[in-house]
Amino acid sequence: MIVIEGLRKAYGSTPVVDGVSLRIPASGITSIIGPNGAGKSTLLSIMARLMEADGGTVIVDELDVTRTKTDLLARRLSILRQENHISSRLTVRDLVGFGRYPHSKGRLTPEDAGHIDRAIDYLHLGDLADRFLDELSGGQRQRAHIAMVLCQDTDYVLLDEPLNNLDMRHARGMMQLLRRAADELGKTIVLVMHDINFASWYSDGIVAMKAGRVVHHGAPDAIIRPEVLSAIYDMPIAVQDVAGKRIALYYE
């Protein structure tokens, strides 16, 4: 379980995360939704110790993320952010292999090689494994990065907009993959999502943020409602039941 208490972060005098307290249950998919600038990515970064909070605590399975040794934490929790700029040339396999760094510190064992091959297979990167990242499309690169994070094999996986750059087929494939990781391996997956319908379809819980605060937290049924969504996004949003799931319509 991830327990967040009174988390605050401001850039200058503008609060970005404004007193967030949250409990994210273990095993399952939790999606964080909300408009641009709601503080979703900042919250995720603080949860993964990439950013320092001005106040408050994040505790992952009894471990305080700011006090725990970073290499110990790297075996429990992984994160992938939106922008991943790499100035040097690496192959997909090199990149995925870095996911094993917390476990083997750069000396890959045969067991690591197995993890790497599996991660490459999961994301259908077999044909691209020996290509350099700068020869790939944005979506392919995104999948390579996600393969690296899966290869890290942590109980907690935080992904900032994992569907970025992915076409429909790969976006669906990605969500199905994450669903399987949660159901079969008991992983706890926290996503920042812009596509609220993907969030609705695949999540166990949804956290809605606005202006640095958590305004709603609950099952998709409780959040994907016209009045709730309209208030979060400041525009009229209709919701329909389709095949037992709730789908938001906001195109017109």
Partner: peptide, 19 residues
């Protein structure tokens, strides 16, 4: 061995447990 990881940038290096 840490150098290769640093190529991924600060965020990813921290995430992979590099001090």
């Amino acid at each position: 061995r840490r150098l290769d990881v640093l190529m991924l940038g600060r965020a990813q290096a921290v995430s992979l447990g590099v001090d």
